[in-house]
């Protein structure tokens, strides 16, 4: 990840709606980021990821031809990906559970529901900076650890091999 200093930090906004794209770019500029790149879909976003090496990505979910889920999968899994660990915030109006779960399973780091508020946007970015999550690599998934909460009463089913010891604890 680049950005030895705050002044060098770069953000990439991937959003097909021009109005929302400009709003997100303007918010990143208001935050003090001087290098903000824009893409209209996942394909252009991936190209910019390779060319510009952003430190933070904000992406929409619904875009054509490459949507935010396919884009995230490409960033996380493609051998061509310059940084599979880059934090990705998905900014979306989707509230349907199956769509949100699909995005989570693609490897999104944080969700930001529309309408965008300063507080919610800043909270998501702070979360990424202050509490970077471990990444998980297994046969079916690569991305930020999807387990955010430790449930001491949880007794299974255990999904990871290294979970099995916990069941006896």
């Amino acid at each position: 990840m680049s950005g030895a200093t705050f002044e060098n930090l770069k953000a990439l906004v991937v959003e097909d709606n021009a109005h929302m794209r400009v709003l997100l770019r303007s918010l990143m500029t208001a935050l003090g980021l001087k290098q903000v790149y824009e893409a209209e879909d996942g394909a252009e976003g991936f190209q910019l990821l390779r060319d510009c090496r952003p430190d933070l990505v904000l992406t929409d979910l619904s875009m054509a031809p490459i949507d935010g889920i396919a884009f995230t999968q490409q960033v996380r899994l493609s051998p061509d990906s310059p940084n599979p660990y880059v934090p990705i915030i998905m900014v979306t109006g989707h509230t349907e559970r199956h769509r949100v779960e699909a995005a989570r399973d693609a490897g999104v780091t944080e969700f930001l529901a529309k309408p965008i508020t300063t507080q919610n946007l800043f909270l998501r970015i702070a979360e990424i900076v202050e509490r970077p999550r471990p990444y998980v690599r297994c046969k079916t998934y690569f991305g930020p650890d999807r387990r955010r909460h430790v449930d001491l009463d949880f007794s299974g089913p255990w999904r990871r091999k290294n979970d099995t010891g916990r069941s006896a604890a």
């Binding site: 990840m1 950005g3 030895a4 200093t5 705050f6 002044e7 060098n8 930090l9 935050l31 003090g32 430190d55 940084n83 660990y85 970015i125 702070a126 900076v129 202050e130 970077p132 999550r133 471990p134 990444y135 998980v136 690599r137 297994c138 046969k139 079916t140 650890d145 255990w158 999904r159 990871r160 091999k161 290294n162 979970d163 099995t164």
Partner: peptide, 25 residues
């Protein structure tokens, strides 16, 4: 259960502390 490898922050590239401090400020 799947064999999962956990990669902790620091074992993968994260934002430099100077950049993180500036951003949090």
């Amino acid at each position: 259960p799947a064999a999962a490898t956990m990669i902790q922050p620091g074992a993968y590239p994260v934002m430099s502390s100077a950049a993180a401090m500036g951003l949090m400020r």
